[in-house]
Amino acid sequence: MAAARRSVLWRGSGLWQAPARVRKGLLWLLLPGLGVAELAAHVWFAARAPRESEWRELSRAVLREKRPGEPLVVAPAWAEPFAREAFGDRAFPFDELARSDDATFPRLLEVSALGARYEPARSWRVVSEAEHGRFTLRVLENPAPLRVRYRFIEHVNPRELTVALVAGTQVLPCEFSEQAPVVAGGLHGEVAFPRERFVCGAGPAFVGLTVIDDQRYEPRRCIWAAPPPGFTLRLVFSGVPLGSALRGFGGLSYFLFRDSAAPPVTLDIASEGVRLGSYVHQDAWGFHPFRLATSASAGRTANVELALHAGGAPQRDFCFTLEALE
């Protein structure tokens, strides 16, 4: 019986009793073996990632876990469109989806597939973890979240913000409109100009909320405040509770300005006539952080005046975020 079994492998003897020439020849079997292995690997890889329907099935579990102020993140990031389609706008508020960074958020809800992790929060504590089919839902806790007293982006409205163009002694107020024409320039054009915005005269200058692309082409929601040539764009936020610092990000659409060597945009910040500091932004930096200490004003509620200027340079399409930290 044993002999018969051996003969299946090789005529009249075991495989390893075969002549060296034959054994060497068997190496050639690696080639068709590679063909089969590649085919098997293809089948495996093709079926590996969760399908659209599986994302939809996950919806209920995700919406149950989702808390306001705790952004939902998806790993791998390329699968996020499925999550947005399946979970809807409720799970992805604009401010959370296009946030500047994670530093001010105490928690994140991570939806993970294929064993991927959301890298910026890999070191955060896992509060809870649950398997749902081919997904893992994790609640992640920020070990040291920055506490925010005031997000300027939440106060871009005519009750709390006044906007004007200033040139010398000339002051041109920018009126708030709820029905301004929506504009979007496509790939090579301007970012989207929202319907609700402060419109400065008949020109293109305005202040409003939009989303720009950062240096990794990621979305960043920000206050569009592009100073026209020769003007200073002045924004005055009223009743801002100041804390230890102002923390912000500034940038221009990276795709449009990544090669630009145009003059920088300067943002001067003052409160009640007292200068708090400045930020000077170079185009190629992308969406860039800055921080100004305001300890001397901490605990005060005051008006904060932002003055943006770029000399005579045209198309200084600056967009920024600003937060008053505790």
Binding site: F94, A98, L187, V191, A192, P194, V211, P219
Partner: peptide, 9 residues
């Protein structure tokens, strides 16, 4: 992606 962001707005 900036085109997608325009679409969002």
């Amino acid at each position: 992606r900036r085109v997608e962001y325009e679409t969002w707005v």
